Simulated scan of single mutants.
Amino acid sequence: MPLDGLTIKVLTDELKELLRNGRVLKIYQPDEATVTLQMRLPGCTETLLLSADPVYPRFHTMEENLLNPQTPPNFCMLLRKYLEPGRLLTIEQQGFDRIVQLRFETIDELGRPAELSLVLEIMSRQSNLYLVDSQGMILDALRRVPGRDILPGRKYMPPSDQGKLDPASLSAEQFVDEIRLMPGQTPVWKWLADSFQGFSAAAAKEVLCRAGLDTRTVRSELAEADWQQVQKAFSSLLQEVLGGGNPAYYPDTDDFAAYTLTGRRAQPFPSTNTLVGAVLSLKQSFKQLTEAKGVLRRKVGQHLKRLAKKEAIHNLALQEAEHAGLLRLQGELLTAYFHLIPAGASEVQVPDYSQDGQLVSIPLDPRLSPSANIQRIFKRYH
């Protein structure tokens, strides 16, 4: 399952407390989609990973060191210029959306205090990371997207929230009123996922499980008493998230979440930060291994094709070498008995001096003259 807005909420709250006032020591960019920030905190150093990978975008702290290129990419050099040695003020989530802002206090080129932000959009293939100034202007982005006006010097505009509601701002009565407006044949889980920020399909179906309803339930199948049950389940899930969550991995379905998934075997984690780091880093490593295997398989296949062509050429040369002695003999016999070769003949029989004068048949090309046939045979011999 993807990293949804509810899990990001818990993760953001955890990292806000863990990394607040951390001093940026060094910034690296190990690959085209990933940036790491080494941060000094009282008594320890933490490394924060920010990934805009199109398959596994994420952010979390990490203990291992990634391999970094000898020459830092341009975006990495820009971050070093503006953020080292800045201080992290806070980490904020935009509502319950999959947009996270890291605000830094730093010093500008004139030595004056300044505030800059790293904005991470966790949007699958559209995931991106931006460096934005205090006026909301883009200094640069990990991926420049002209079609969305994601270019240096342009105003940063977050993606549309598609009119989704903030789940924390809705009262119980307002929630029930929203249910009343739902079209009759709409699956309830889809309505939840489409109407509220942060609710993935898994979170929406979890609401129905907590309400004691089938996840395939549509609006017309809800009794008025069910409305209250859905609202209570919705509130229960939201309060669990706002209270710090219950991070766990669910091995039977290969899912993970910062909240409980009812009726599934769970493997608890001490924090959402460690959960996201462990699960998504492993998935990322497996993806990279699969991609590397594919590249290696293609290269080996191409090399085998080249070797097969060379083998065919060498086999042909060996076959011709095996017949070289016969070709030389045929050429010498035709030269010796040139006067016996009729024009336009497809073969000729001549005495073979190596076989006590026995007649041997030598194939000819009837389109060629006798002398041209002799030249053709000697050419094949050489």
Rank of each mutant, 00 (worst) to 15 (best):
A345C: 10
G184L: 14
L165H: 00
L237G: 01
K155M: 05
Q135T: 15
L129H: 08
C76E: 13
K232Q: 14
E173T: 06
Y56T: 06
K26Y: 14
K309L: 09
P363T: 07
L41A: 10
T36V: 14
R180I: 10
G22S: 11
A372S: 15
M77N: 15
D13G: 07
Q126G: 07
R20Y: 04
M62W: 02
I377D: 10
P183A: 08
K293H: 11
P270S: 14
A317M: 09
T335P: 12
G244Y: 11
E121Q: 10
R367A: 12
E121L: 11
Y250E: 01
S169P: 08
A141Q: 05
Y156H: 13
R148H: 05
D161G: 05
G198W: 00
D255P: 00
D31V: 04
A172K: 11
T215E: 12
D4G: 09
A343F: 05
L6T: 01
E17R: 15
V276L: 02
F338S: 11
E115P: 00
L165R: 01
G184R: 14
V24P: 04
S346G: 12
P158C: 02
R143E: 00
K81R: 15
D108P: 02
Q38V: 13
P363V: 09
S361K: 10
Q174Y: 02
L50S: 06
E240S: 12
R40A: 15
N273S: 12
T47N: 04
Q355G: 01
E46Q: 13
